[in-house]
């Protein structure tokens, strides 16, 4: 199949990229755009490691075809830090020990940031609901809940 050109805004930057129609958004970002932070854990939308935000809503990028994001805004884990400093969500995951092997973490943090953007004061139950699409096998989630609470608190405090 001939490649087709799509343009998308990735982490605030407009990019044109030649894709094959069967490439997923995840593959496109990892292989063609060389942003390897997002991970494939299952390829079937069941683990959330590939979570990205498309036009402000989180998706499993392993199930989205590259041409579908033509003209859209995509944010990956690489787009979270700004001006050389970590996003408060990223910092909170470090501080609470909310990460171990790290493989689920890029997707988890994109989902957590989106959760806090939608709800600046999430309760524990809301955090548990909001992150249910992001499997973590290492932490048992306890320190991830703490990280999201801490991040929300710091963001509310203007960090």
């Amino acid at each position: 199949m001939p490649r087709q050109l799509i343009s998308l805004t990735i982490n605030g930057r407009e990019r044109e990229v030649a894709v094959e129609p069967h490439w997923t958004l995840l593959e496109t970002v990892r292989e063609a755009l060389d942003l390897t932070g997002s991970k494939e854990g299952c390829g079937t939308g069941d683990c959330g490691a590939c979570t990205m935000s498309v036009d402000g809503r989180i998706v499993t990028s392993c199930l989205m075809l590259a041409p579908q994001v033509n003209g859209r805004q995509v944010t990956t884990i690489e787009g979270l830090q700004s001006n050389g400093s970590l996003d408060p969500v990223q910092q909170a995951f470090i501080d609470t020990g909310g990460l171990q092997c790290g493989y689920c973490i890029p997707g988890m943090i994109v989902a957590a940031r989106n959760l806090i953007d939608d709800n600046p004061s999430p309760t524990l139950d809301q955090i548990r609901e909001g992150l249910a699409g992001n499997l973590c096998r290492c932490t048992g989630y306890t320190k991830i809940y703490e990280a999201v609470e801490l991040a929300a608190e710091r963001i509310r405090g203007g960090a």
Partner: peptide, 21 residues
Amino acid sequence: QRVTRLDGAAKVTGKTVYADD
């Protein structure tokens, strides 16, 4: 002491290189 991981910043930014990367 409660010490945060040496590889924490790399992991939360997606910089850590796994074999598939």
